[in-house]
Every structure is written in C-alpha cells, then in structure tokens.
Design a protein around this nucleic acid. Structure first.
Lengths: 356, 356
DNA sequence: CTGAAAGCGCTTACAG
DNA sequence: CTGAAAGCGCTTACAG
C-alpha cells in the first residue's frame, strides 16, 4: 500500500488537462486533419462512413471538446457576439437580449454583455472590444444621435447590427433591426377609437427623437382615418421615463384646468411613461379608465399587475434579437433597414381603457 | 497615374490584419519576449526605464491590442466569466448582473451570459461551457435543490461561485455569496412594529425553501424581541411570484372572513409577491395602508411607481455581483459562505405602510 | 535579467 | 481526397 501511492505515476501523462483532437484521431486511427474535417462536417471528406463513425464515436467517448483558444487563433473567430445596450433594466432590452441569446446559443455562439455608455465613451473599453477582436460581431443599441460617428467607426471595424433605433445613420453604416413603431401606435389608437374616443392625446419621449416621430405618425394616421386629429394642446413631449409620464399628465391636467373639453384617452409613448401617468392620475383624482383611458407602447411583465392593469401593445422584441444575431452570422451583413413586422404588434387590452 | 495603382504593392504586406506583438517589439527595437514582459508589467524586468517607455510608446502608437486567441491558447485562460441565472427579467438578478459586469470590466474581463435551465438540463450546453474551457469561471444562481449535484459537477471542473442561494450544498462545493436574508425581514418587521403594528402576517415563497426559512426567521426574531409572535393562520406559503402574492392575500382574506381579529400588516416575501398583494387588495376593497400595511423584500425600480408606492428593503445585490467576480479572480476560491452585510439592508419606507 | 526556442491545439494551404 | 507540414500570436520554461 505504501509504495503504491508514493510515486503518482500518472501525473506526467496527465499534464495536459483536456482531450485533444490528436487524441481523438489516434483513438480512431486516422490523421489529425481528417479527424478535424470529419468533426467539422467538411463536405469534401470522402472517407468511408465507417471511418467517419469511428471518429465521431471516439470524440464522443473521450468527451472531446475543441480548444476554443486554438480555434480562435487559427480561424480568427471567437464564437462570441457582443451585445451592448444602454439600460438593461429596461424590459425592452431584456426581451431583445433573450431572443439574441437563444439564437446565438442555437448556433454555438455566446453573448458577451457590454454597456453602451462605456463602449462609446471609454477609449479603453472600445479598443479592447473592437480592436481586440474579442468578438465576431456586435449588436448595438442605436438611437444615440451624438454617438452616431462612433457607431460608424465600430461598424467599420467589426460586423455590426444596430437594433431598435430609428433609421438615421443606419442606411449607410450597418443593418438596422427595428420594430414597426408606427403600426404599434396605430393599433393603440384604433383600439381607443373603437371604444368611442374621438379626442385622443399623447405623452411621449423627446419630440425630435425619430422613434417618437414614428410613433406620433402612427397616432396621426389612425386618427386621420377616423376623421380625427392630434392636437398640440393634447400632447406633451419629455423623456421616456416614468417620471416624465408623471410630469406629463400633471402638465396636461394644468392645461385642462376645469375645462370639460379635453381628451378622454391618452397614449403613452412607452410603458414607463404609462406607469408614471397612472400614478399622476391617482394623485390628481383622475379615475382610470372612467375619467381617462390610457394605453401604452411596449408590453412588460408589470403591465398586468398594475392597478388598474395597463393596456399595451407589444412589439416583436424577441424576434428582433433573433434577427440581429442571424444577420451577424451570415457573412458580413450589408447596411439595410429591416423592420420586423412578423409577428405584427399585438394589442393587450386591459383595464386602463374603456368605452367613452 | 495608370501604372501606379495597377499593382497594389501594399497588399501582401497587409495580409495579417492586426498589429502583432512582434511589430511593437521591432518598432521599439527590443525582443518579442521583452516587449511581452514590459507590456504585462513583469516585475522581473530590469530594462532601463527609457527602454520600457519605448515599448509602451510603440504599443500605444501602433494601437497594439493583444490577440486574445493566442493568449488564451498559451495561458489557458479566456478572459471571460460566465454568469448563468434563472430569470434575467427578475430585477434581483439584473442588479447582481450589473455589479458583476462592472467588476469584471474593471479587471478586463467580460461576462458571458447563460441560462440556468439550459446549462443544467442541456448536455450540449453543459459540455461546451464547462468542458470546453470557454470561460475561466462561473457565477451560478443556486437554490435549485434538484440540481445541486449538477452544480457540484460544474464546481469540480471550473472555478465556481454560487450566488443568492441558501447555504445547502455550498459549504462543501463552492463559495456562496448571499445577502443577509434575516436582517432584511427583521428590518421590515421592526419598521412595522415601530408603526404600532403588533399582529403581523406573511405571504412568502415555498415554506421549505431555505431562503424562505431565513426570511421567516428574521420576522420571528424581530417579533419575539417585541413580545409578539408569527401565527400560522397569518401566513401563506406559495411561490415567489406576483400571482402567488395575489392568491395569498385572497386566501388570507377568506380565512379572516368578517372577523376583526386579523393582522394589520403583512410582509411580502419578495417584491413580486408584494405587487400581487396590492392588486388583490384593490380587488377585495382592502385599502392600503389604511386597512392593511404591506412591506416587501427587495427594492426594484417599480416600487416607487406603484400606487400606493411599495415599502421595501433593499439588499446589496450589486455588491454581491462584485464580490462574486472578485472571488473568481483571486485564485481558485475555496468553499465558504460569504454573507454580504456591508452595506446592510436598507429600508425604503413608502406609502404602503402607515401607523396602526 | 534577457533572448532564442519551443509549444499551446487547432485548421488549412500545399503537395501528393 | 488525404496527410505532413506550417503557422496563427502569444508566453514561458530554458539556457546563457
């Protein structure tokens, strides 16, 4: 017993920690290159099926997993895609992230997480990620007017897809994957019109933001079809936050004063704004939906749990994430604008909207 | 002019796409190994400061970024950490993720995102991530009793840190980073006691879940200190969801019937449960906080926007993420239980709690 | 302490 | 079509 354990004879042999391709090849009695080709399903391989099977079996039996470092060094691809968004806490980007992650995983890619602000302002972060070739492609949240040039630089160095941004620099710089913003607000507006509302207002993000412009357009189009219009006095443009929704409704209430000629329904530029509006309504003694109907863009997990539950329209965010990854994995994607309209926006009629 | 462009003489020279360490060394007139050592701040280097400066300057000037594939192959480390959580939409994991991401970035590491269910049930995903050495370490959400063995396997193959799980398998398998659950509920309970409530109930997650047990213990301890107790009839244990909070309060209301001897305050095992309770209260005509105070574990972005705004206690999730990364980056972390108690839980007293 | 050499494990021109 | 050889770019024993 004593002599047996004193020498640890296996140690030297086990120095390298994993199973190498060469080990698989040896076990299957083929050359290393052939093993490589078989495992990578090279269509040019003409080896007998029996030989191929032996390679696959050996790989399976030995638990072979390619060394990613070696492969990366040789092929100059990392098997990683970067996803940089501005604000992960936003449910919007979470769904997008989930879609991207799933699609990436299905292709044996992994997703690396970045922060937009960091990438766009921190020189070091930029260099590591972009020049360092640590990722094979990048999905970046657009809509940062000020950083358009920076995104263009990135797209020049790395296959890049912009998601969920309005089509500004996109057409020339990188593909854009966006939802049909106009369809979403059109759908909300039509829902309100169908409930008998004829004067409909809007609280939304920055007036000049292209996303806002698309959403406003959708409202206008639907109203016009019904012979109605969107009045400036019924709209407030602040930011995309709950605080802005809160402030926005208070502003409208001030404008209304005691007048009885006011909108009976409001569209919220996004769900956060809608949430803030609900709170302001409670403070102001405006009962929703009796006194005012509210409907918001983007459905989130919280919508159905609010009191009253918020009527929303959901956009195909998951599919946007999937599409972005698919674009990145098919050669160098060309600059183009891809509006995901399948599935179309989906209305979730809940308790904040009622007949007028 | 014509002859000039016809040959593209620079092409061959530019075949390799990036600046290599050898290029930097040549520019600085030192050997490649020395350049490597200078750039990696090897303390054994005795070269003149002027020489070092020349190397650094050359690297800077040429925009040198190390080839990650080569480095990975050589050093057997990827510069990547995996983070697998069960449910990213949970605000809990988002904060944890942010903390981990920041700390990783500060150490030039990137975070790769995984899905717990996928990792624990999909053999392929497991092999790629764990055996494939695609990451240097893994942060995994614990608390999946059924998968304890699987997590133990992972921890055996890869430096692993378990986060936000109760201390079950942890002590022997991998370090655990957890919040002080008991302190959180103790704080909520003391807040309610201070408001004059003496009969306090609880709606929480699965009774046998260790997390739940810790939270219940905190409630009991605080109540005991005040000469009160937690009655079984005042507690409901379902799941950690908003739906459960909703069902839980309805269940309690049924138990209460018309009796006037019932709790004046309830603690929600987490924020989601609290949100569901608020909805049930609205349906049942229970006015919060007049008829019933509600206080929940975990603060999220939505808490302050609810109507009424939800009183919560926040746990140091960001710090947990940071700590998990730090553990992973300091050698092979030893199995131990790390309770993050600095900063301590923080009470956010809002509108769902009032004096009794 | 520093440099020349080796080698990490893979894939892929290249020659047969 | 397949195998022997080269080489991706780095770091690190090893020898000096």
């Amino acid at each position: 017993m004593q002599g047996e354990s004193s020498q640890e004879p296996n140690r030297a042999r086990q120095r390298r920690d994993g199973v190498r391709l060469a080990d698989v090849a040896a076990a299957a009695q083929v050359s290393t290159p052939l093993a490589s080709r078989v495992l990578n399903a090279d269509p040019n391989v003409r080896a007998a099926d029996e030989t191929k099977a032996r390679v696959l079996e050996a790989a399976e039996r030995l638990g072979y997993v390619p060394n990613i470092g070696a492969r990366t060094l040789r092929q100059r691809r990392t098997g990683l895609l970067g996803l940089v968004v501005h604000n992960l806490s936003s449910p919007i980007y979470l769904d997008l992230l989930q879609g991207a992650r799933t699609e990436a995983a299905a292709n044996n890619y992994f997703l690396v997480l970045g922060d937009v602000d960091e990438l766009l302002t921190d020189e070091e972060a930029y260099r590591i990620l972009v020049n360092g070739k640590r990722i094979d492609g990048l999905i970046v949240q657009g809509g940062h007017g000020e950083f358009d040039q920076r995104i263009a630089d990135i797209a020049h160095a790395l296959p890049t897809v912009i998601v969920n941004a309005p089509p500004t620099l996109t057409e020339t710089v990188a593909p854009l994957v966006a939802p049909d913003e106009g369809a979403a607000t059109r759908m909300l507006t039509e829902h309100l019109l169908a409930l008998g509302h004829t004067r409909i207002g809007l609280i939304s993000g920055p007036r000049d933001s292209p996303t806002n412009q698309l959403r406003v357009e959708g409202v206008r189009a639907a109203l016009a079809s019904a012979g109605c219009a969107l009045h400036d006095v019924d709209t407030v443009h602040l930011t995309w936050s709950a605080e802005a929704g809160h402030a926005g409704l208070r502003e409208l209430a001030t404008r209304w004063g005691n007048s009885s000629t006011r909108p009976t329904a409001l569209i919220a530029g996004n769900s956060l704004i809608g949430i803030g509006m609900l709170r302001a309504a409670a403070e102001l003694g405006i009962e929703v939906p009796r006194d005012l109907s509210i409907a918001a863009v983007h459905d989130t997990w919280i919508s159905e749990h609010l009191v009253p539950a918020l009527t929303t329209v959901s956009l195909p965010l998951r599919e946007m994430g999937e599409t972005a990854v698919r674009l990145l994995l098919t050669d160098r994607p060309e600059a183009q604008q891809i509006i995901i309209s399948d599935p179309p926006p989906l209305l979730h009629a809940r308790a904040t909207t009622a007949t007028n």
